[in-house]
Structures are given as structure tokens and as C-alpha cells.
């Protein structure tokens, strides 16, 4: 049994979001972090490892600096790391990315009792599409928005968190789960883990490694294989600071009505 975790290095959008004149994100000027939901996926896999002793392989697609992120996941307790990297993969949208990651996961090999974990969505694109697309392309059952995961024998019970409630689903591995922040609290790296991580070999899958997979075609990967075109991206205008009205309900309603009247809204 093993757990495969997909992670993505993203610009930290909690601070100022920088946009280049051509409308694309200025990633170089922003700090690179591990996508937050992906850390929940890593923690879910680590919990499975704590319970079962399974191996954890972490996978990312990105330029070589993404190795630093993989080392951090190794330092948290993952056993192996795979960097999928190549010029041919550059510019991929969610469709092309899932083609490539699905091919990479096939290369790693999905056994009967394996579980693939992904974060729900990345904070740079917020699409929540790559995880589900990987599941489809691998022909695996998928359960998204996992807020609780419980494995009992060969059955995994997943509580999904939806906008208007919860849904509980039972699924058998091999399967793909996408994780949300409510699922767990990601653990820290450890001092010994860091030492092990920097001395670990990271496997690199380039275009040549994956090119024989039917999912990898010039028309299905990279910029040319991406059906999505980004016309522009921009930083939305900052909302002004809100005003908190104090007092009992009669007083606050009176104040609110006064403010709305002043603005000629009522």
C-alpha cells in the first residue's frame, strides 16, 4: 500500500499580489509556498502512514526550484519525491496538467490498495479541477472536499463538506481524494526530517520519461495543449474598512437607516 500526494508550489497570495503588465502573475516577485490545501493532503497521507506504515510518494509538476518544496514535504515525513519538469510541460492549464500528472502517477504505478491525495484547489488559480481530472484520467473513483477520512480495512469512509451540508461516501482503493483545510492541521517538519530530506534523492520525470504514455501528446500538454486561454488577471480593488455599529438592535437599525438614507440608498 502507498499514498501518492500531488502538491503544487504557488505564490503566496496572502500578501500583495503582483501582476505583470501583460496581465499574468508576477511569480518571481512573490514568495513561493506550498499550496495550503495540498498541505492538508500531505497530512492526510502522513496520518495514513502513522496508522498503516504505508509509503508516501509526493509528486509535483513545476520548474526545478520546486525541489525545495518537495524537500519540505520529505522533511514532514514523506518517503520519496518526484519532480515532473520539462520545457514541454510549461504553460499547461488544468487539462494539460492533469494529463501530465496522471501519466506521472501511472509511471509511479497505482496498486490495488493505493490512495492518491490532492488538495482541493490551488490558491493561484482556484480552479479545483486538477485533482478530479487526474482521477478521471486514471479511471479511479474520486471523492472531493474531504473533511474527514477514516480507513477501516479496505473501505475508506469520507465525509465531504459541501456548501449546504455534509455527504458521507464509502469508497474502496485505489481511489483519489481531494482534501480541504477542515480535514486536519498539517504537522511541522522535524529537525531529523530536514536532515533526511536534504540528503534524499529527488526523482525527476522529464518529457522523455513520460512521452510514451498515451496521455502525453503535443496536443494535450503544455501551452499548445491547453484549451484555456487567460485573457487578463488583475488585483481586485481593496474593499474599504467596514464600520461596526454598536448598541442594541433598535439603536443599530436606526444608525443603519440613517447611513443608508445619507447615501440615498433608501
Amino acid at each position: 500500500m502507498k499514498a501518492i500526494v500531488c502538491v503544487k508550489q504557488v505564490p503566496d497570495t496572502s500578501g500583495k499580489v503582483a501582476v505583470k503588465p501583460d496581465g499574468t502573475l508576477d511569480r518571481a516577485s512573490m514568495q513561493a509556498i506550498i499550496n495550503p490545501d495540498d498541505l492538508n493532503a500531505v497530512e492526510a497521507a502522513l496520518k495514513l502512514k502513522d496508522e498503516s506504515g504505508c509509503q508516501i510518494i509526493v509528486v509535483t509538476m513545476g520548474p526545478p526550484p520546486a525541489m525545495g518544496m518537495l524537500q519540505e514535504v520529505l522533511a514532514m515525513g514523506a518517503d520519496q519525491a518526484v519532480l515532473v519538469s520539462g520545457r514541454e510541460f510549461g504553460g499547461s492549464d488544468t487539462y494539460a496538467t492533469s494529463q501530465i500528472l496522471a501519466a506521472a502517477i501511472k509511471k509511479i504505478g497505482v496498486d490495488q490498495d493505493d490512495v492518491i491525495f490532492c488538495g482541493r484547489q490551488a490558491i493561484d488559480g482556484d480552479t479545483a479541477q486538477v485533482g478530479p481530472q487526474i482521477g478521471e484520467k486514471l479511471g479511479l473513483p474520486q471523492v472531493t472536499y474531504a473533511a474527514d477520512i477514516h480507513k477501516d480495512g479496505d473501505v475508506i469512509t469520507v465525509k465531504r463538506m459541501l456548501e449546504d451540508g455534509y455527504m458521507t461516501i464509502r469508497v474502496k482503493p485505489p481511489c483519489l481524494l481531494t482534501c480541504i483545510k477542515e480535514l486536519n492541521t498539517p504537522r511541522f517538519m522535524s529537525v531529523r526530517g530536514i536532515h533526511r530530506a536534504v540528503n534524499s534523492e529527488i526523482t525527476v520525470f522529464d518529457y522523455d520519461t513520460l512521452k510514451d504514455d498515451p496521455l502525453i501528446e503535443k496536443t494535450t500538454i503544455g501551452l499548445s495543449g491547453s484549451p484555456t486561454n487567460i485573457l487578463t488577471s488583475f488585483t481586485p480593488p481593496q474593499k474599504g474598512a467596514g464600520t461596526m455599529l454598536e448598541g442594541d438592535s433598535q439603536q443599530t437599525c436606526d444608525k443603519l437607516a440613517g447611513i443608508l438614507a445619507d447615501k440615498h440608498i433608501i
Binding site: Q71, F188, S190, I194, A197, V198
Partner: peptide, 10 residues
């Protein structure tokens, strides 16, 4: 070193 940078971050 890379290891020290990671330790500092942790």
C-alpha cells in the same frame, strides 16, 4: 546551507 535554511524556516 539548504539544511540550515530549512531549519530556520521550521
Amino acid at each position: 546551507t539548504k539544511e540550515q535554511e530549512m531549519l530556520k524556516k521550521l
